[in-house]
Design a protein around this nucleic acid. Sequence first.
DNA 1: CGCGAGCTTGACGTTGTTCAACTAGAGTGG
DNA 2: CCACTCTAGTTGAACAACGTCAAGCTCGCG
Lengths: 229, 229
Amino acid sequence: MLIPSCVDCTFKKHFFSLMTTEELDALNSNRLEVKYKKGDLICKQGTTPTHIICLYNGIAKVYIEGNNNFLLSILTSQNYIGIQSSFNCASGKEPLFHYSVAALDDSYACLLDIQTFRTIVHINHAVCLEVLAYICSIESDFLKKVEVLSQKNPHGRIADTLLYLSELFNTDRIDMKLTRKDIAELSYTSLENTIKILSELKSDKIINLDGRKLELLDKKKLQKIRELA
Amino acid sequence: MLIPSCVDCTFKKHFFSLMTTEELDALNSNRLEVKYKKGDLICKQGTTPTHIICLYNGIAKVYIEGNNNFLLSILTSQNYIGIQSSFNCASGKEPLFHYSVAALDDSYACLLDIQTFRTIVHINHAVCLEVLAYICSIESDFLKKVEVLSQKNPHGRIADTLLYLSELFNTDRIDMKLTRKDIAELSYTSLENTIKILSELKSDKIINLDGRKLELLDKKKLQKIRELA
DNA sequence: CGCGAGCTTGACGTTGTTCAACTAGAGTGG
DNA sequence: CCACTCTAGTTGAACAACGTCAAGCTCGCG
């Protein structure tokens, strides 16, 4: 066990930091620690969630499956999977994952029993409120993504993706774990077209790109491309 | 006032039915009743919500604005607008509508003060839990929509739209308030292409279409088109 | 050294948008 | 009562943006 107990866990954020020691103990009692290798599937679209997955170290992609996947977002450390799916069982139906998640690099996660988590949310009002805020903020990000998807052309979508990555990693010089195909799927654009557009951006000195080292040279222009395209 | 008070309102559903008389009284005390005419904007993308809008009679479209709008869903009577936006203010930012809503026909709504609503959710745990369930179920529908958008071709998307409408109105013979353009925007397809595909479906005896009277003749085939396309 | 995965580029083809023209019906005003 | 205008719907033709295909390249690893 890399993490001794939920009680002392240093990765607690959001609603977890509002839980009592007893509640954290309950979660800890049947907690699982898992190491995912690069490429491993963390959760599978269409299945019923049995655990809240707390990615405490690593990186993963959230995507809708298809002939070409569509990446909804990139998860970094200290993020959770399956929170929303814990509660959309209103009409007696089983909740389902509407997306898959896969590790982009070796990653570590704790699996917490979903029923225990639900019970805590039912008992602890403060936690419940924070879960609500968390879910709403995810939905908000998600709507922004759909706006880009539905309103922008490939140039605009790729500019958005690059700005998204820069914001996510909080730097203009990103050493990406993402392949070109990941970027393509994040931008809902074909692999080849993505590469062509990235090359254009490079020769226009808007970005620099060397292998997987990405540098945003001119964010203003990128933002302009995102707006206008 | 068409509705005397929230307390006696017969339109209460979900979390509203879990509120106490005092809480409903509080909402009622500064409640507004509004009639929207066909075409009226009910809420505007990019603005901050000030009220929970309860559409108690009528029909409206929820859409992301752009050169071509993208319709996320159709709202029928007894639905709420702005619930999600009430809580995504975690990081101190103002919550914003990420979509617009417009009346497709003359519609009636009550506007409830959002701050009062927030306070109730903060006090009443049962209501909070039900709000959570409500939001998660909306997000679930929403993800299904994005799956169709990102994975299906225009035929599949239009088949999905028709099946969606049939399920929404709970009938195979729909007297639509939607124009062809609405159907196009709901399917993320150009107006002309939408009309062509609808004509195909008609000549293949899969649907019947006379003006705005739509009849689904062969749902199995529609489902097959949605799956395969 | 050879293999395979990831990356890149150019040529080609297709789907679906755009444009243009036309019809029908509904509302308006002289 | 009949021009008129405007909106909604429909159809066909032209175009272009993208995706697809094919080929070759590089690099890391066994």
